[in-house]
Design a protein around this nucleic acid. Structure first.
Lengths: 248, 248
DNA sequence: AGAAATATTTGACTGACGGTCAAAATAGGG
DNA sequence: CCCTATTTTGACCGTCAGTCAAATATTTCT
């Protein structure tokens, strides 16, 4: 192994630092303006580099936005994995993931909007292969965190193996979560459903699915309020947005 | 009241016919290519009119696509309302809506993709006020169809009023349905969850939520297979895509 | 029927933007 | 300090949504 010249190392560092800078500003623009209402020239101005330099880091505007999405998804996966190690019965740990999910949504408000764009094929096509794979990888981590708890719940007998398979159960939880996050963003529906807190419905709907799966202990036979307090205290001591959730 | 000149009437007819033609071709292009991979010139060529003429009908490309989405949403609302008149217990009628939802997804495969675009603010902004309202109206019809059944279920005692309000219950059903439709489209997740039939998971997840809501009769205490046969026979006699759903 | 008035259609044009690349600027090595 | 390699730049290109003045068609009037 030959030593790498220090100037090469420095360049590498600078390159990575610049990439971070670009991503940070892109995230801000996405949050403030969505996808259309800014262009690469504007971003170049914000980071004090020229357009051409941006394209040394990202193959397209879409590639850059996918990177922002994947960064957020990684945070989500990190939170999920931390939550899945919560001490308690399997359904309590599932609940911890529910909180993690809401914590994430509060931290990364831009995420769900971007994820919507990713559903369109043309977006995906314009991104680089490396970034596509990175995104799939972080998505798989999230899936696995939920799936592991469900498999364990079945193993210890908290969750019946019939009539739903572990995969069906995981799919249901993921679906209701994503669907709830989406619907809660819809101003129309918020009015119709009388929603004020954005996070409550997500966890409420997860509860319904868990009860529907016959995941023990059921909502009405266990003091989940106590669990919730523990989750917040142990997993999210610094978060400030759980007052309503805990009825406090 | 003065009589309207026949030539005016004819013009009106021709105008509407042309609008239909444009919408039909736009729908085809959306289905074949998504949103980006075609332009207004191409559409103009397809309908044998010039670009300028298209803009007499629609204020923007987005406005046109919103019209396509709303047409589909109207079909959805029609199916929902028809399904909600199914004869049976409240939960059976809810189930009929589940089938209507899948029938719709089969008929309008382009719909969910377009609906994703509608989540981005810039899209809404470019559409005309009239079409925005039309979309909201059809959306409200769908919501109401579900909500009415739930309100009635609570009135007749099939569905407890506690701990979930009628609005919460409606919101949960809508969320799980949309979420499931979305997730089922994700190739990754289809593999991970081992999904072959695209419609089954949607209805399965609705079942979980209904059970979670304690909507009687529960899945395991009633012969819903019989209900399903009746739903298909009475509501969708011409549909061909229910073999798997009925285990036949 | 023919001319004038009115309505409709058209497609060249504009502006905006994503992406490219040859030239300019900078850094590195001797 | 100069020569070479690397990096940065921004003018330029192609594309496309949307506009509008001119061309064309239709209706009305005499």
């Amino acid at each position: 192994m030959s030593a790498v010249s220090p100037s090469i190392q420095r360049k590498e560092r600078e390159f990575l630092a610049r990439e971070e800078l670009i991503i940070t500003h892109a995230r801000r623009l996405l949050l403030e303006k969505g996808f259309q209402a800014w262009n690469m020239e504007e971003l170049a101005g914000a980071v004090q580099y020229s357009k051409g330099t941006l394209y040394q880091h990202f193959t397209s505007k879409e590639d850059l936005v996918l990177e922002v999405a994947t960064d957020a998804l990684k945070q989500r996966a990190d939170l999920f994995e931390r939550a899945s190690r919560f001490q308690g019965r399997t359904r309590e740990r599932c609940r911890a993931i529910g909180f993690a999910c809401c914590e994430f949504a509060a931290n990364c408000p831009e995420y769900f909007h971007i994820e919507m764009m990713l559903k369109s094929a043309s977006f995906w096509e314009k991104a680089s292969e490396a970034r596509r794979q990175a995104h799939a990888f972080q998505g798989a981590r999230c899936w696995r965190a939920v799936n592991h708890i469900i498999v364990e719940a079945m193993a210890v007998g908290d969750l019946p193996r019939e009539p739903y398979s572990a995969e069906q159960a995981t799919f249901a939880l993921v679906s209701v979560t994503v669907g709830s996050h989406l619907m809660v963003q819809e101003p129309h529906l918020r009015v119709q459903a009388g929603i004020t807190d954005e996070m409550m419905p997500v966890r409420v709907n997860q509860d319904m699915v868990c009860d529907g799966l016959k995941w023990k202990p059921f909502l009405n036979e266990f003091d989940y309020a106590e669990t919730d307090k523990r989750i917040v205290k142990e997993l999210f001591p610094n978060a400030v947005n759980w007052h309503q959730a805990l009825g406090g």
